[in-house]
Amino acid sequence: MILHITTNADYRPGEPYRAPSLDTEGFLHCSDFGTVHLPANRLFAGRDDLLLLVVDPARLDVPLRWEPGSPPDPNGAWFPHVFGPIRPEAVVAVHDFPSGPDGFVLPDALRFFGE
């Protein structure tokens, strides 16, 4: 499974999901369970209107590539990039993803995967 951070306002259940980065960079930024906190803390600190989409790569009908971050992560982490809209069938779970006092952490339901 891979993860994508979005906002409550931008996600429409049952509809193909696309983020502005699909038009500007050609792909949707995603993460895995061990790296999702990196872009979350860097880009969304203090936000409480976020959702975490859990995406099944086997259900995508567009290419998925693991590549260096955009911009590159200082520690060299690679991230999954989805090269097209995410179809509704590929989103297997949706979790609230608020920033806590120590930044972002995986929701309780997903912590097993991040360990």
Rank of each mutant, 00 (worst) to 15 (best):
H4I: 15
H4A: 13
T7W: 00
N8R: 14
A9E: 15
R12C: 11
G14F: 09
G14K: 13
G14M: 09
E15I: 05
E15L: 13
E15D: 10
P16C: 09
P16D: 09
Y17P: 03
Y17W: 14
A19V: 13
S21M: 03
S21L: 04
L22W: 02
D23F: 02
T24C: 05
T24V: 07
G26D: 00
F27R: 01
F27G: 02
L28C: 13
L28D: 06
H29R: 14
C30N: 06
S31F: 05
S31W: 03
D32K: 01
D32F: 01
F33N: 01
H37K: 06
H37T: 06
P39A: 14
A40M: 10
A40W: 08
N41D: 15
L43W: 14
F44G: 07
R47W: 03
R47E: 11
D49R: 00
D49F: 06
D49P: 01
L50S: 08
L51A: 10
L53H: 05
V54T: 12
V54D: 07
V55E: 07
D56R: 08
D56N: 13
P57D: 11
P57L: 10
R59S: 06
L60W: 06
L60P: 02
V62W: 02
P63V: 03
R65P: 00
R65A: 00
R65K: 02
R65L: 00
W66R: 04
W66L: 12
W66K: 00
E67W: 02
E67A: 12
G69A: 11
G69V: 10
P71Q: 10
P72G: 02
P72N: 05
D73N: 06
D73R: 03
P74N: 06
N75D: 11
N75R: 05
G76R: 04
A77L: 08
W78F: 12
F79C: 08
H81I: 03
V82P: 02
V82T: 13
F83Q: 04
F83H: 03
F83Y: 09
I86G: 06
R87D: 08
R87N: 07
P88S: 12
P88L: 13
A90E: 14
A90C: 14
A93K: 08
V94E: 08
H95Y: 10
D96Q: 15
F97P: 01
P98L: 12
S99E: 07
V105W: 01
D108Y: 04
D108T: 04
D108M: 01
D108K: 01
D108R: 01
A109G: 08
L110V: 13
R111N: 04
F112Y: 12
F113E: 09
F113G: 00
G114P: 00
G114H: 01
